[in-house]
C-alpha cells in the first residue's frame, strides 16, 4: 500500500538529500516525489511511498523524519484517498512544527 506524506523543510543545503536518504534507509521506497519552489527559505515536498516489508511503520517513519533538523513539519493526508490529486487532500499534522 502506498502512503502519502507532505513535508515542510527549510531549503538548506542537503535537506532534500537527507530526507530522501532517511526514507530509503528506513525501509521505504519512494514512488513519486514533488518539491515545490522554495519560498521564504522553506519548501514543501509531497511524496508517495511504500514500505519495503510489512514490519515498517509509517508512524515511526514520520517521527524519524520529524527529527531531522531541516524538517519543519510532517503531515499525513486526513482522507486516505491515496489516488486523489494532492491538491484535494486535507492534511493532518503528524509531527509538530519546529520553531
Amino acid at each position: 500500500m502506498r502512503d502519502t506524506l507532505r513535508i515542510e523543510l527549510s531549503d538548506s543545503e542537503g535537506a532534500l538529500m537527507r530526507l530522501v536518504g532517511l526514507v530509503e534507509r528506513r525501509g521505504f521506497t519512494i514512488a513519486t516525489l514533488e518539491k515545490a519552489d522554495a519560498a521564504d527559505g522553506q519548501s514543501t515536498v509531497i511524496m508517495r511511498l511504500s514500505a519495503r516489508d510489512g514490519a515498517r511503520s509509517l508512524d515511526v517513519l514520520t517521527r524519524q523524519i520529524g527529527r531531522l533538523f531541516d524538517v519543519r513539519a510532517v503531515f499525513t493526508p486526513e482522507l486516505a484517498a491515496a489516488e486523489a490529486a494532492h491538491a484535494s487532500y486535507r492534511w493532518r499534522q503528524a509531527c509538530p512544527p519546529r520553531n
Partner: peptide, 30 residues
C-alpha cells in the same frame, strides 16, 4: 557531507565566512 549523512545528527557546509560563528554555535546547540 554526503558520505556522513546517514551517521550524523546534522551537517553543514559553511559557504559564507561571515556566518561562521553563528553556524558553529548552532551546530553545538544541535
Amino acid at each position: 557531507f554526503g558520505m556522513s549523512m546517514p551517521v550524523v545528527k546534522h551537517s553543514i557546509i559553511i559557504r559564507d565566512p561571515m556566518r561562521i560563528p553563528e553556524m558553529i554555535a548552532e551546530a553545538f546547540a544541535i
